[in-house]
Simulated assay, not measured.
Amino acid sequence: MSTSIPVIDLTGARLPGGPRAAEVAHALREAGTRSGFFYVRGHGVPQAMVQAQFALAQRFFDLPLEAKQAIDLRRVPNMRGYESLGAQTLDATARPDLKESFYCGLEYADDHPYVLRGHHSYGRNQWPADLPDMPGQCYAYIAAMQTLAQRLMQLMALSLDLPEDFFDHTHDNPMGTLRLLRYPPHPDNADERTFGAGAHTDWGAITILAQDAHGGLEVQMPEGDWVPATPVEGCFVVNLGDMIPRWTNGRYHSNPHRVRNVRSGGAPRHSIPYFYNPDYEARVEPVATCVPAGTAPLYEPCTVGEHLRQMYARTYGSKTDAPAMA
């Protein structure tokens, strides 16, 4: 494990007012001001639940291609479902990403106001007919990730010298996207522009990643060097998305990362990220503790949805709502 990516133990800080909350908040501040990446242990998510999710991912990707394509994410406006190998290119200077994936997330009914307004990511999920247990298992995992993400937002508030509940009002109608990923072995004849996932930053607030034992995730440090985020048993990898620098006036970082499945011995790599975003209509603006007296904020106020649309326009030259984050 690279010492550049710290391990933060949430024991004693998993609940509001926990005895170690201030200590953990300090550690989060140190990570946020450097790489925006850290491991968490003592997170309260049973390891059996994580392993069951990996087993489910393998069962899904082992389905016949036609069964997966029947729930292609392009069939629905909120982009939930299957994404085929090479369908995404996260780094515009690289080749198409060598990965296939499945998206699902928090589900909202057809008559929910945000669904009726066409807000991205709000709506129903698509599920494969051959895996009837998949929805229940994924919803249980999403609930665990949502609890952890919202607690991390509370600890982030403490790290910014704000009240612990400062961000709680942004959780009213949150966006949460679970992604199952499979990366084939890295080709022997691959060039330097070939990646499982090209270099990118995440657009949202917090990403919580479970990865299998193969490794392959690399993080770019502020100095420019790439370091491996080696799998650590019992830990998630957490990274801050581009929304957090906006909230912290640039104090906390959202660093680039990429994936190359080069150490798997010919086996596919699986990973399971959960992308947490607050309420689409919640306001995002630099918090007062991050704006020095007498200076103007570096970022204009916006909503969560406006931020995501701006990130999409910057990447794709369109003002269409953002697709599910990478």
Rank of each mutant, 00 (worst) to 15 (best):
G266S: 09
G266H: 02
A267F: 00
A267E: 01
A267N: 02
P268D: 00
P268E: 02
R269Q: 05
R269V: 00
H270Q: 04
H270F: 11
S271F: 06
S271Q: 03
S271L: 07
I272C: 13
I272W: 08
P273V: 13
P273Q: 01
P273M: 06
Y274D: 09
Y274A: 13
F275E: 07
F275Q: 08
F275L: 13
Y276E: 07
N277C: 01
N277L: 10
P278H: 07
P278G: 09
D279I: 07
D279Y: 09
D279N: 02
D279V: 10
Y280G: 04
E281W: 00
E281P: 00
A282L: 12
A282M: 05
A282F: 13
A282K: 11
A282Q: 09
R283L: 15
R283D: 13
V284F: 09
V284Q: 06
E285I: 08
E285L: 08
E285M: 10
P286H: 11
P286I: 00
P286M: 07
A288D: 08
A288V: 11
A288I: 03
A288L: 09
C290A: 14
C290F: 14
C290D: 07
V291G: 14
V291H: 10
V291K: 00
V291N: 07
A293V: 13
A293D: 11
A293P: 00
G294T: 12
G294K: 05
G294E: 02
G294L: 05
T295S: 15
T295I: 11
A296S: 14
A296R: 07
A296I: 15
P297T: 11
L298V: 12
L298K: 06
L298H: 09
Y299S: 01
E300Q: 15
E300I: 01
E300L: 14
P301L: 14
P301Q: 09
P301T: 10
P301R: 01
C302M: 15
T303R: 01
T303P: 03
T303A: 06
T303Y: 05
V304K: 01
G305K: 02
G305S: 14
G305E: 08
G305Y: 07
E306L: 00
H307G: 11
H307E: 13
H307V: 06
H307M: 05
H307L: 06
H307W: 13
L308Y: 13
L308V: 08
L308S: 06
L308Q: 03
R309N: 06
R309H: 05
R309L: 10
R309S: 12
Q310N: 02
M311R: 14
Y312I: 04
A313C: 13
A313H: 15
R314V: 13
T315F: 14
Y316E: 15
G317V: 04
G317S: 05
S318C: 10
S318Q: 05
S318H: 04
S318A: 14
S318E: 13
